[in-house]
Every structure is written in structure tokens, then in C-alpha cells.
Design a protein around this nucleic acid. Sequence first.
DNA 1: CGGTCTCTTGACGGAGTTCAAAGCTAGTGG
DNA 2: CCACTAGCTTTGAACTCCGTCAAGAGACCG
Lengths: 190, 190
Amino acid sequence: MTLSNYLKEKAAFTNDELKIISDSFSEVSFEKKSMLLEEGNICRHLFFITSGLVKTYFIDRNGHEVIINFASENWWITDIHSFEENKASRLYIEAMEDTECLVINVQDQYALFDKVPKLERFFRMLLQKHTGALQDRLFEHIAATAEDRYDTFLERYPNLQNRLPQHQIANYIGVSPEFLSRIRKRKVKG
Amino acid sequence: MTLSNYLKEKAAFTNDELKIISDSFSEVSFEKKSMLLEEGNICRHLFFITSGLVKTYFIDRNGHEVIINFASENWWITDIHSFEENKASRLYIEAMEDTECLVINVQDQYALFDKVPKLERFFRMLLQKHTGALQDRLFEHIAATAEDRYDTFLERYPNLQNRLPQHQIANYIGVSPEFLSRIRKRKVKG
DNA sequence: CGGTCTCTTGACGGAGTTCAAAGCTAGTGG
DNA sequence: CCACTAGCTTTGAACTCCGTCAAGAGACCG
């Protein structure tokens, strides 16, 4: 099972622990274009994606979608603020392909932390990495050009480039689809 | 002592726990313009600021300072990635006023987590809040104008507005000092 | 009083947006 | 299997936001 393999790669969990963890999650499927989370709702689940692709976004005050990140195989996704504090979410999470997930709710998560304390620390580390990634994206948006951000996107998600329509990439790097088209044209010319 | 009062306000620690926590921190002072952390070094400390004001920034590839955030009384500050993983930091932390801190190193932090497990969860929650704040700043930079970001700054740090030179605020919201000056002129006119 | 730091103002330029139109591609139903 | 449609990408032109450069005006500090 994928979650166990993933955890084995990432940290030193015993087989007992892996079993306890796996048993705490349930499998859920989402069809392409269906929603894992919608704005205004409380995010009830922490998702581990075993196959497929989702995007997280919010709607800005001009009614435009703003993509925060993508997540595919072996990524965790949730609105952590909503999930942990039971607050209405500002975010949407939408399946961009048919997607298989393992999910856990917040109570079961804390019960699991009590059974496998190592996991709480593991999740704290994950959160740290996520925070680092957010900081890097903020840096890019303050200090780098759109072309730089596009290059960074290509390096960071080499496998996503062909799974995503170009205007979604444009949205993620924070430019209009027209301008990304021009960037690409410029790059081909050299 | 300030840290105990702060923790009492924020979560239900017992007096014993508060004493154990307080005893694990040491006091350090920094003069205005001195550095708490410099790029290339490992961030050895988690800082709790009891008085004063610091800024965290990095130097972008054009040699310009880019301010990530400010921290004053009752704020935690560190480069968490460097601190936890013993990696060279990309960041600078600089005192903008004479500043008093309580500090702990990473080993003592983990020893403290073992003695007061509640604290590890508390820190995870802090990290979540920090992540939320970073996400909000990213949203702003993708979807809001400089004027919107200035308004948000004023709401978020009402007490910092008069303690900071205007060009530092400009840097924080990601515009040139000249342009912030124009924004302010526009706002006065109504 | 002189120097340094800070804020303002003007002129110009560049990065990126918006709008509109046209060409492409892929999926869908008949 | 073809035709149609809907969504995706490209291109051009005008426009906006904001940065850079340069110069001057305060303000603070020794």
C-alpha cells in the first residue's frame, strides 16, 4: 500500500506503527472536476493523494481564481487552518484528474498522534517544509520576474508540465495566460 | 516574567510546566543594528522577543534587501528551516531597535519537548499560524495592488507604523520607496 | 553648522494586463 | 467517422502599474 511505502521512505516507522497509521485512513475517490473542499465549508479531512492531481485555489475579490498549489501522487493536501481549528475555509480544492485519496479527520488524527507520537513530529516537519516552500514562492513573487517564476515552476514540477493546461500554469505563477504565451515564445527564440 | 505570562495567555500550561520552560531559555540582548543571524550561518536559536524590534530579510540576486517580516514584543522569530535542520540560512535577522530576547537552542528545545509535550503541539500550532500568515502575504502579492498591501500592513501592524521608517515599510509590501510615497499622497487627497 | 539619512516629486521606461480576434485542439453526439 | 462546439493558445494594440534615475527638501545627529 502506497502510504506505508511513502512513510517508510521518509522516516523510520516500525511495521506496527505503519499498520496503525494505515488503518486510521479511509480510501476516497474523486472524479475529475469534483471538489474535495469548497469555500465556506470546514475542511474535515487531511488528504494523502495516491493517484491523480488536484489544485488548491481561492477566489480573489475580482472573482478570479488564484491557484496556490498543485498536488499529485504522494502529496498531502488540506486547508490546515480550517482542518485544525474547525474554521470555515477560504479555499477550494478541486480534482483536475480522477483522483484517489486516503483521508483522516482531525479527531482520528489526534488519536493517531497519541498512538504514534513519532507521526506528530513527522507532520510538524512536513509543515516546516511546506512553510519553506511558501516562503520561496513569496520571495519569487517579490524579487523575481515572471520568466524566472516559470523556470522555477518547470524545475519544481517537471512531471506536471504536460498534465496541466497552460493557462493553469500561468495562473499558478501569477501572470495572464497571454503573457505566459509570450514568455514561451521568447524562450523558444532563445 | 514575560514568557510565562505570554504562555499563560495562549494555552493551559501548569505552573510547573511554565517554570521548566522558562528555565530552559537564556536572556540575550542585541543593540540596534546588530545581527541575530546572518546569511550562510546556521540559525542556532529560537528567539522570543521580550522588548524591541527586529526584521528578517534576505538579499536577492540584484543585491537588494527583501524584508520578510518584522517581529516585536511577544513574537517568536527564527529561520525554522536552518534551526531545525542545521542548514546554512539564506536569511538575515537584524535588530532595528535595542532588543531583549529569550533564546533556546535546538537540542534544548527537543529536551524541553520531552519534558513538556504540550509545548511541541503549541509550537506546531504557532507554525500553522505562521504558515497561514505567509499564505495571506502570498495571496496579496499575487492578487492585490500595492495600495491594498499597504492598507493590510496598516491593519496588521498598527503599532509598527510609527516605529518604522517609511522605506522599510515600502520594502516589506514590495514596492519602491518612491511609489509608497505616491500611494500615501494619493490616499491623503482621498 | 555640515553631513547623512529620509521623504517627495518629476520624467521616462519596461514589465505585465486587458480586450479583441483568429487559429488550434480535442472531445462529443449524431 | 465526421461535424460542431467549447475550450485552449497565440497575436496585436493600447494601456496601467510600478521601477529607476535624478534632484531637491526636510529632519536629525554629532
